[in-house]
Amino acid sequence: MVIQTDLAKGVKMRRPRRPSRLRGSRDSRGYKIFTWVNSSLLIVLCLIMLYPFVTVLAQSFSSPSAIKAGMVSFWPVDFNIDTYIAVANNGMFWRNYGNTVLYTVVGTIIAMVLTTSFAYVLAKEHLRGRKILIGLAVFTMFFNGGIVPNYVLISSLGMKNTMWALVIPGAISVFNLLVMKSFFENLPKDLEEAAQIDGLSWIGIFARIVLPLSKAVIATMVLFYSVAFWNDWFAAFLYLDRSELFPVTLFLRNLLAGASSAATEGAAAAGSTATALSANIQSVTMILTVIPILCVYPFVQRHFVSGIMLGSVKG
């Protein structure tokens, strides 16, 4: 909130002044050169950022023999969609893709219920023990159990080879919790007080006043969590043994690991068809895995940014 108001102020205060400051000022020619250099640098940066996507996309539409010959960079060579058809006919790929969707949805729902209710309580400044509760949550940011004790815990709870090992441990991200908390703290207090006078209980206020006012932050948090669940592979790698439970990220990881170990053992000497073919399949799988994120990205990017700023202004 603080940053947002400052932001508006900053823009208003600086905008009109800049042009007049530069017009006719000593460094205006130097400034022109600077602007030119600056823009070129940023354009080069964008190209570097985008190039890996372009080349993966190009490979996914190229023939294995063209990839093997090292001919593919910006543009598909021997354009075809055979690999897409092959991957699309792979039952395990779709099964794992479906698992990813399922884990993302279930994980996000659990995480949202826990995070929202916790954040609402932490935002109540009059609450006895509030500082302790915040401290309990924040401490877990700086010190965590580590892989081994977590593994032992999940195994002993009997959660191995179930969906729960993936969706439950990620349920409260302290960062997201603090973002929501500072959002709730900045809601106008009068509304809640009025509702209280009308006899609503705390839970009533939460459900009927606070949640409807918080659609923006809820949307942001849903996005944060769902991207995290969608992208996760490591929990699945640790806790799942049966390939029909894998999420698609683990499917992709196993493709990559297969190719890598083949290259390491020298079984696939320079440019054999096997590596080229696997590069092709990898590209297709990568494209299909990132497509949902690329599709929603333009619409949600702004929310992510505002969420980050909200959270980083002292919660």
Binding site: P52, V227, T249, L252, M286
Partner: peptide, 24 residues
Amino acid sequence: ISYLPHFLSIVIIVGMVMQLLSLQ
């Protein structure tokens, strides 16, 4: 454009690295 890589799974990023640096 520059925020985009932040939203990718680490598996995807490693996949891209492997492809860019492979022999082909």
